[in-house]
Amino acid sequence: MKVSMTVNGNDVTNEIEPRVLLVHYIREVLGLTGTHWGCDTSNCGTCVVLMDGQPVKSCTVLAAMAAGHDIRTVEGLASGGSLDPVQQGFMEEHGLQCGFCTSGMMLTARALLDKNPHPDATEIRQAISGQICRCTGYATIVRSVQWAAAHPAGTGVDDAPAADEVLDGTDTPVPDFATEIVDTEVKA
């Protein structure tokens, strides 16, 4: 069947099987692998995307059901060359460790802040309660969202670097611990 929807502001149309889940459509058909695929059972929330501005678990929505709707993925967070305050907040407050839950967490945070620009810590914890951070880094995730709430886009208080500066990674030095780990012999 043919499905058409808007993804990060772009109109997309594809021929797919009706049983294709939205997460696989986004990752495999559209090639947007920033949306992660985790538990498959709508428990972990790593696959969260925004559908008409509301967070949904894309492993439990058919791509066919999303047809005609407006989908936003993590790739659609940065705009005009600037990171979304939520992305900047996750950088400032170390909101990620392994990064697996991060895109879903950031999209939920974006939807929360759009609805409630000044959430308290409890409201943030409730908003992300359907998502699992396997590194258990919840305290820093909450602080990251609070940072974003305190630095809304367009207020001039954020000095977010341009998105391409951050994302191309060319200037990122290899941290020392990485070489240390490689050099360490594993003892049987």
């Binding site: 709508s42 929330g45 967070p55 678990k57 439990t60 939920t108 409730q126 908003a127 309660s129 359907g130």
Partner: peptide, 9 residues
């Protein structure tokens, strides 16, 4: 009931 994201659907 469920979690906030499931409740959206």
């Amino acid at each position: 009931i469920a979690d906030p994201i499931v409740r959206n659907r």
